[in-house]
Amino acid sequence: MTRETKAKQGPFNLIIAGVGGQGTIFASQVVARAAIEEGFSVRIAETYGVTQRGGPVYSQVRIGRQVYGPLIPKGCCHLLLGLEPIEALRRGADYLAPRAGVVLNTHVSVPLETQLGKQPDLRIETIERQLRKLGAGELLAMDARAMAEEAGGATTTNVLLLGAMCGFDVFPLSYNSVESAMRATTRPRFLEANLVSLDRGREYALAVKNVNQNN
């Protein structure tokens, strides 16, 4: 399917889910800039303010020739970028479309009340299983934080996952425009680290895809 036909079927819907401070807004801004560079229209709904202090946050990104509101209808998310796996499932449960792509960081951020034993734990294996039961198509689970520590540093985890997302067939934008948007969005002192992690994420996604195709 070409990018053009994808856009004609209504907007492409992406959700970026994580915990306050992980950089969901930054990731969505990079995608938005890449989208308008490619001539698309874009609308993003974000969580700001006191709601973001360590709490659940998510950005809804819609890309297309014409986009009205920024809110994605239930069951219509084509690609889910999970910066934190519990939060990925929280949004995936309501929004995942059949055969949607999922990029999943396996590094869990355990909620306070779970640490205190006041509510049950949710293990990464369960999260992956539930996402598959929801009809996820391509699902790439990776310890993105560990990988980022070896690439541009732990604070570039969001960027590494963004890079991995670029390797997905359903993602309608090219890696080049994401990289160029990254250059335009990042503060100079963090740019080199971000570019290293962005590239590492994409390489990893492509490598996994190759292995899967050869098997």
Partner: peptide, 24 residues
């Protein structure tokens, strides 16, 4: 959302722990 898909969504939401906002 179909009825079945909506029920699945509700069932999964019950598994997901609350995440209270807290101080930085």
């Amino acid at each position: 959302l179909s009825k079945g898909r909506a029920e699945q969504s509700t069932a999964i939401q019950k598994l997901i722990p609350r995440r209270q906002i807290g101080f930085c």
